[in-house]
Amino acid sequence: MNKYSISYLAIIIGVISVSTAAVLVKLASEVPSAVTANYRLLFAAIILLPYILLKRRDELKKLAKREWILTIVAGISLAIHYIVWFESFQYTSVASSTVIVTLQPIFAFIGTYLFFHERFSAGTVISMLIAIFGGVIITWGDFQIAGEALYGDFLALLGALFITIYFLLGQGVRTKVSVMSYTFIAYSIGALAIIIYNISVSNPLTGYDSNEWLIFLCLAVVPTILGLNLLNWALKWVSTSVISMGILFEPIGASLLAYIILNELITWSQWLGGTIVIFGLLLFIASTRRKRKMKITIDHS
C-alpha cells in the first residue's frame, strides 16, 4: 500500500474518530456539559504533555508575548465552543447539532473577509446561501418538534462561531509554532478556563462513576488526539481540500452512530436540510479552492 492509499485510509479513520464525539457526549448526559468539556480538554492536554516536554519544550520558550496572548484567547474561545456545543445536545439531536456546527467554514470565510479583506466570488456567495438555506430547514423542522430543540440549534450555531474565533486567532500563531505545541497550549488554557467556570457555577468535578470517567477519556483519545493527528498527518500527502471535504461527512457518521447506539431517529427536515448543508459546503470548498489553501481543522469535534 503506497503513501497516498495510507493517507486516504487515515482520513477515513480520522473522520470516523471525530464522528464519535457527539455520541460520547450524549452518553454522558447526566454529567454537566461544562464538566464533560473540561475533562475532554484536560485529559487531552495531559496525554500531550510528555511529548511536549521531550520534543517541543524549546519551541514553547521561543514564543513571543503576542503569540502567547493570541493562544490564550484562542484556548478560552475553544472552551466556550465546547461548553455551548456540548450543552446543545441536551436540547437537540446529534444530527441537527453536528450539521449546524459544521457551518463553521462559512463563519471562517466571513471572518477572513472582515479581518483580512478576502474577496467573495459569485460561487462562494451562492454556495454559502445554499448551506445557510439547509440550516434554516433544519431549524424550522426542529421548531415544529419543540421550542427547546430550536434553542439547542442556536447553541450549536454559537459553538460554530466560537470555534471560528479559535481558528482565526490561531492562524498567525500556527506560522510560528507546530500544531502539537499550539493545541497543547490551547487545550491547557481551555481546561483551566472551564475549571474556573465549573467552580463558579458549583458544578461538581468529582463523584462520577467509572463509565463516565471512561467517556471523558475516550473523548480525549478518540476524536481529539487520534482524529486530529490522523487528519493532520494526512495533510503531508493530500490537499487541504480533500481533508475539508472528508470532514464534511462527520455529521453523517455522527448521525448513523446516534441511530445505532442511541436509537435517535432522523427527521425529514434533518435529512433534507443536512443534505443541502453538506452540498452547499462542498460547493463552498470547491469555489474557494483556487483562491487559497483552506484548512478546516477538527478541534470542534
Results as ranks from 00 to 15, higher is better:
M1N: 10
N2G: 14
N2L: 11
I6T: 12
Y8P: 02
L9H: 12
A10T: 07
A10D: 10
T20F: 07
A22P: 02
V23H: 01
V23Y: 02
L24S: 11
V25Y: 01
E30K: 12
E30P: 06
V31D: 02
V35P: 00
V35A: 01
R40W: 02
R40I: 12
L41K: 01
L42P: 00
L42Y: 15
L42H: 13
A45R: 01
Y51G: 00
I52W: 11
L53F: 15
L54V: 08
R57I: 14
K62I: 05
K65R: 14
K65N: 10
I69Y: 14
I69Q: 10
I72G: 03
I72A: 09
S77T: 14
L78V: 15
I80T: 11
W85G: 01
F89T: 11
T92C: 08
V94M: 02
A95K: 04
S97K: 01
V99C: 03
Q104E: 05
P105V: 07
P105D: 04
I106E: 00
F109V: 09
T112C: 01
H117F: 14
F120K: 07
F120L: 06
S121Q: 12
A122Y: 15
I126M: 12
S127V: 09
S127I: 12
A131F: 10
V136D: 06
I137S: 02
I137C: 00
I138S: 00
I145L: 10
G147E: 09
E148T: 13
L150G: 06
Y151R: 01
Y151M: 08
L155W: 01
L157Q: 06
L157T: 03
G159N: 06
I163T: 11
L169G: 01
Q171L: 11
K176G: 06
V177T: 15
M180G: 04
Y182K: 01
I185M: 04
I185E: 02
I185G: 05
Y187K: 03
I189E: 00
I189G: 00
G190A: 08
I196R: 03
V201N: 05
L205E: 02
L205Q: 06
S210P: 08
E212Y: 15
W213H: 07
L214N: 10
L214M: 11
I215Y: 10
F216A: 04
P223L: 05
G227Q: 02
L231F: 08
N232M: 09
N232F: 15
W233D: 11
W233R: 03
V238N: 03
S244C: 09
M245E: 11
M245R: 10
G246W: 02
I247C: 03
L248S: 06
S255N: 08
L256R: 14
A258G: 08
E264L: 09
L265S: 13
L265V: 13
T267Y: 07
Q270G: 06
T275C: 05
F279Y: 11
L282A: 12
L282M: 15
F284D: 00
I285V: 14
A286L: 11
S287Q: 07
R290Q: 15
R290M: 13
M294Y: 15
D299L: 08
H300C: 02
